[in-house]
Computed example of a mutant assay.
Amino acid sequence: MATADDYETYVAEAQQATMKGWDFSWLNGRADGGGPSWRSNLPPGPFDLVLNRHGVLDAARIRTALAPGGRLLTQQVGSRKLELNETLGVPAPADPDSWTLDVAVRALEDAGLRVATAREEMSPYTFHDIGAVIFQLRAIPWQFPGFELSEHESALRRLDRRIRIAGGFTVHDHRFLIEAQAGRWSAVEPGRAAVDVPPGRCPH
């Protein structure tokens, strides 16, 4: 069973963990969950495809890039992921309603795309020790503006005790999935290769 002394151990391990881009493998065994339930399966066919996972969703640019009848498939990180901010007393980086499924769908439809699929989930994600929490704070600092380990030590120690008593601390990842299609009036001619937008920091 973890003791109070483990707090310093977990903190030290998390601070010394190597950050390698968008690699969260250090959390294996220390946190779990967060994956949405959907799986995307597009039917085969002669259409162009844009894949966007956690990238900036520029509706107007995507609209002009798609061939007539071309499809967009995107998974986005929403703005309602605030439980850890609230627990630690860290201000939210943005309005909780600034980037939701409804906001994204409206942007795509305003750009002339037809939305075929729209799904939104709050997927549970559980931290099993305070080191996993601190690693998360380091990995996505834009989610926790102004966070300083020393200034938030009291809140972290309270959360550490909560995790050790309850066996974990569960938050919910805000994710949404959209499949949309360009009309036959697209200015881009058919036959362009598919575009895969790599994962990365989404400013929303």
Rank of each mutant, 00 (worst) to 15 (best):
A65K: 08
L66P: 04
L66T: 03
L66C: 07
P68T: 00
G69Q: 04
G69S: 12
G69L: 05
G70D: 09
G70C: 12
G70F: 04
R71L: 14
L72K: 09
G78Y: 06
K81R: 09
K81F: 04
L82P: 03
L84P: 06
N85K: 09
N85C: 15
N85A: 01
E86D: 15
T87R: 11
T87W: 08
T87L: 11
G89W: 12
A92N: 11
A92E: 15
A92V: 10
A94S: 07
D95S: 12
P96R: 12
P96Y: 08
P96E: 03
P96I: 09
S98N: 14
W99R: 00
T100G: 01
T100I: 08
L101W: 06
L101C: 09
D102G: 15
D102K: 10
D102N: 12
V103W: 10
V103P: 09
A104S: 07
A104E: 04
A107I: 00
A107C: 12
L108M: 12
L108S: 04
E109S: 11
E109L: 10
D110I: 06
A111Q: 08
A111R: 07
G112A: 10
G112V: 08
L113E: 05
V115Y: 03
V115F: 10
A116C: 12
T117C: 10
A118L: 06
R119H: 13
E120V: 13
E120I: 11
E121P: 08
S123K: 11
P124D: 06
Y125I: 02
Y125A: 02
T126N: 05
T126P: 02
F127D: 08
F127A: 01
I130P: 05
I130R: 02
I130A: 00
G131A: 09
A132W: 03
A132T: 06
V133R: 07
V133S: 07
V133C: 03
V133F: 00
F135R: 00
F135M: 01
Q136L: 08
Q136A: 14
Q136D: 15
L137N: 04
L137G: 00
R138C: 11
R138F: 10
I140E: 13
P141C: 11
P141H: 09
P141Q: 11
P141L: 07
W142R: 13
W142L: 13
P145G: 04
P145K: 05
P145H: 03
G146H: 07
G146Q: 07
G146L: 01
G146C: 07
E148Q: 15
L149S: 11
S150L: 07
E151V: 01
E151F: 03
E151W: 07
A155C: 07
A155V: 05
R157I: 05
R157K: 15
R157V: 04
R158E: 15
R158I: 10
L159N: 01
L159Y: 06
D160P: 01
D160I: 00
R161C: 08
R162N: 09
I163C: 06
R164F: 08
A166F: 11
G167T: 09
G167R: 10
G168P: 05
G168L: 06
G168N: 10
F169S: 00
F169H: 13
T170G: 03
H172I: 10
D173S: 12
H174P: 06
R175H: 12
R175F: 03
R175D: 02
F176I: 01
L177W: 04
L177A: 03
L177R: 05
E179Y: 10
